[in-house]
Design a protein around this nucleic acid. Sequence first.
DNA 1: TCTGGGGTCCTAGGACCC
DNA 2: TCTGGGGTCCTAGGACCC
Length: 414
Amino acid sequence: MEEKIIFHIDVNSAYLSWEAVYRLQHGEKIDLRKIPSIVGGDESKRHGIVLAKSIPAKEYGILTGESVYSARQKCPNLTIVPPNYEIYMKASNSMMDLLREYSPYVQRYSIDEAFIDYSCHRENHYLDVAYQIKERIKDELGFTVNIGIGPNKLLAKMASDLKKPDRVHTLFYHEIKDKMWPLPVEKLFMVGSKTKRKLNGRGIFTIGELAQLDPDYIYSWLKKPGLLIWNYANGRENSPVKNSSPPVKSIGNSTTTSFDVDNKREGHMFLLAISEMVGMRIRELDLMGDVISLSLKNHQFYSYSHQKKLDIPTDSTNTIYNISKKLFDEMWTGEPIRRFSISISGLCSNDFCQLSLLEEYKERDKALDRTIDRIRYKYGYNSLIRSCFLHSGIKPIIGGVVAEEDYPMMSSIL
DNA sequence: TCTGGGGTCCTAGGACCC
DNA sequence: TCTGGGGTCCTAGGACCC
């Protein structure tokens, strides 16, 4: 059997690049990519983290995910711009359209990453094709990408991460030793901060050192995830490039509140506002779910969750709200809360679920939810709101991601 | 004015059943 | 009163990804 040829395309500093391109196209003179800059959340709303950074900002030691506050400490003349997800989604869609010209086997892995299985297209040399894709994206769409090429998705992904920006790298089996093994172990896909700490604690600092361990040893120590990363360290992975999206497993929304919530009434209002979005999304996808879970984060950043399995699947905003309210009342200790999140899982398709005669969720309620959805899609989310939110200072519908164009969320498994 | 929001998967313990 | 044991469901928590 011939070796597969997999590409991994990764947009360099995606949000920041897309923001820069958009601004240049709209008459701005400065290219954000060429100055120390970040795309960051609104600090006054306590959303202040770094979502993306320019390469000059990276040189100041600024990291994605750190607070905007500390980024500014590192670089006082940092340019900070707010995110604009609709623009990023459009840029991403354009890139996917371009990639699909090269193969039907294109897997969108996240908003800024994709895999292509190029194995069947032996008529052109894969390196020429990769360079062509990279240059076309730069010329036609205005941003740069890294392309990694390997015999499987893992190695292609590791390759695209090698040196940035605007590069093509290969990582075939015979190159693992030179190109991947010297890297620090936390560069390996699926080795996060916790695992890095454990590995370092036993003297394992490079991917090569992990690769050399005895699999029985790592299994008895780190169980299944240990064996997974050990296989990855040795370049072993063989999942297919999927061009259709896997079924959705859960739908959830959350918000960090701009102030700590210390009373039940306001807590319930946030739950209602989030339930509205979760309900709208599950109905949009024509699904129902029978597990509602609520997770809270307190003012000390400690998170905890409770969930409830229902006898009957639901897609009703009121049911989602009532269950999450019940969960909140049973788990809340009275401490100040900074983040609320609700999600629904145990999903099944609507037509399959709805037939239960015992169903308490009446057809009438269902029709009401759907009617409200239609009005909100047509005239805007705030065209129809619950009166309790009037003059409350709390947004009546909270959360993002209403099927712009359903794109599959990646999972941590390739 | 310090630390987001969207996900997936795995584990472990207790309840319950045969 | 010596305390089986395997399977499934449910729940809470934790790891990882972008």
